[in-house]
Simulated scan of single mutants.
Amino acid sequence: MTLTHLDEKDHPKMVDVSDKTPTTRVAIASGTITMSQEAYDVVVNEKAKKGPVLQTAIIAAIQGTKRTPELIPMCHPLLLSSIHCDVEELPALPGFKLSVTAKLTGQTGVEMEALTGTSIGLLTIYDMVKAIDKGMVISNVQLEFKSGGKSGNYVRS
């Protein structure tokens, strides 16, 4: 298998996607953050001193998704048509699952955008409640689904 981000001299390059046919592309990524019961209760009851944690995490996830090419080398700037973020309460952990769905019609996929948005959203939760629990764990940041493009669909089993 040839790595597409290296040229014939093994120098880094951005992949040329200009000859690819635009298709509708969707990617969904998710991840979890586990925390103490005290931190979880503060978030759920909206008592964090820094403000509404989950709403802020959603905004951060959207911003992270949009700014992916500024953070990840070789990612193409994309004209995203939709970004959706969802946060699920997981009282049994205790913690939260954050998911980001990114969509566009274009010549390259949006997997990195969904993964970056998920990571930034989870990091924002950490930042906003770290005064209560520095032992929080961010885990399982992963691609759940992708569609579009030459490689077709992917669904995490």
Rank of each mutant, 00 (worst) to 15 (best):
S82Q: 14
E8H: 04
H5C: 10
P94E: 09
T4R: 10
T4Q: 15
E8W: 00
N140K: 05
T116E: 02
V15L: 08
E113L: 03
G31S: 00
T68D: 13
S99L: 06
I72T: 11
V53R: 15
D16N: 14
A39M: 10
T118M: 06
G149V: 04
M74V: 15
L71H: 00
R67S: 10
E111S: 02
L98T: 08
E111Y: 05
V26P: 02
D19S: 14
T2Q: 12
V137M: 11
T124Y: 07
P12L: 13
P52F: 13
H76S: 07
E88H: 06
K49S: 14
Q63W: 06
E111P: 00
Y154D: 07
D16A: 10
I120E: 04
F96R: 04
M14Y: 06
C85F: 01
V100S: 02
T108E: 13
L79T: 15
E113A: 13
L90R: 01
R67P: 00
A92G: 01
D133M: 13
N45D: 00
T24M: 15
K47C: 09
S36A: 12
S18K: 12
L143D: 14
T124Q: 08
V15T: 14
M1Y: 07
S147Q: 09
V15C: 03
F145P: 05
Y40K: 03
L93S: 12
D19H: 13
T2S: 14
R25K: 08
D86K: 12
A131Y: 12
M128L: 08
T34E: 02
S119C: 08
I132Y: 11
T68K: 11
A102N: 03
A92V: 05
T101K: 15
E70F: 07
I59H: 12
A60P: 01
R156S: 10
L123K: 10
S30A: 11
T105K: 05
Q63M: 15
P91T: 06
Q37R: 06
G148P: 00
A61E: 15
H84G: 01
L80I: 05
S151M: 07
A61F: 08
C75G: 00
P52H: 10
S82G: 08
D133H: 14
V155L: 11
L122W: 09
H5M: 09
M112E: 04
R67I: 04
K134H: 15
Y40F: 15
K13N: 09
R67F: 06
R156M: 10
H84K: 13
V43M: 02
A39T: 08
Q107G: 14
T101G: 04
I120A: 02
L98Q: 12
K146M: 08
D16F: 04
A27E: 07
G121V: 03
V110P: 00
S99Q: 13
M136D: 05
F96P: 03
E38H: 04
S139F: 02
F145C: 02
K130H: 13
M14D: 07
L143N: 07
L104H: 06
D133C: 14
S36N: 11
T34I: 01
S18V: 09
V100T: 12
A114K: 01
S99V: 00
V17I: 09
D86F: 04
